[in-house]
């Protein structure tokens, strides 16, 4: 499935074409389920979240028209934001999430285009320019949904220090990406 084909499926979903929505689900649900599992670390909750995410996609697909993101980035953003919102509003936060789960990044699938691979290399290169700990914090937040509070605890620094760290890292990252 090329990005262009996914774009068409999202547009047709915005028109409430169920066949297009079914195809969109077929081609993108594994990726979005991967997002839910990684962030939520709980299979039942991830399944529930995935349903909610596709309900959002069905009802808000027309918003994609107003976005400049690539179709898969838009879908991942919807999924990540939803999973993180769920994580943040869990009844009993932290506690059991003491140990950082270190899941290795998978090798990019054959569907990953050369462009995507290039962009990934670029952001990895920019992350590598940050101090190791800070790059770890940025990756942990993006992929595992770590909060400021969790990161501060893990790295043994006060919350405000963590915030200053991460904000500086984000600015540096942007500077590097825009070079």
């Amino acid at each position: 499935m090329t990005p262009d084909e996914i774009t068409k499926l999202i547009f047709r979903t915005a028109l409430k074409e169920r066949a297009a929505f079914d195809l969109l689900y077929r081609y993108t649900s594994a990726k979005l389920f991967g997002v839910c599992l990684r962030v939520l670390q709980d299979r039942a909750e991830a399944e529930e979240a995935l349903q909610e995410i596709y309900v959002k996609i069905w009802t808000k697909a027309d918003r994609f028209a107003a976005s400049d993101l690539s179709p898969i980035s838009w879908l991942v953003a919807v999924a990540r934001n939803h999973a993180i919102d769920r994580l943040r509003t869990r009844k009993a936060p932290a506690g059991e999430i003491d140990e950082a789960t270190d899941i290795a990044d998978p090798a990019p699938g054959p569907e990953a285009s050369a462009v995507a691979a290039g962009e990934k290399r670029r952001i990895d290169m920019c992350l590598d320019e940050l101090e190791t700990e800070r790059a770890k914090a940025v990756r942990g937040a993006y992929l595992d949904g770590d909060s400021y509070a969790e990161l501060a605890e893990r790295f043994g620094v006060p919350l405000n220090t963590m915030r200053t760290w991460l904000r500086r890292s984000l600015l540096k990252l942007r500077e590097c990406l825009e070079q």
Partner: peptide, 15 residues
């Protein structure tokens, strides 16, 4: 858009 390339790190899992 800037951070999107990191999403390569999410391994697809068929639901």
């Amino acid at each position: 858009a800037r951070l999107a390339p990191m999403a390569e790190g999410f391994a697809p899992v068929p639901p």
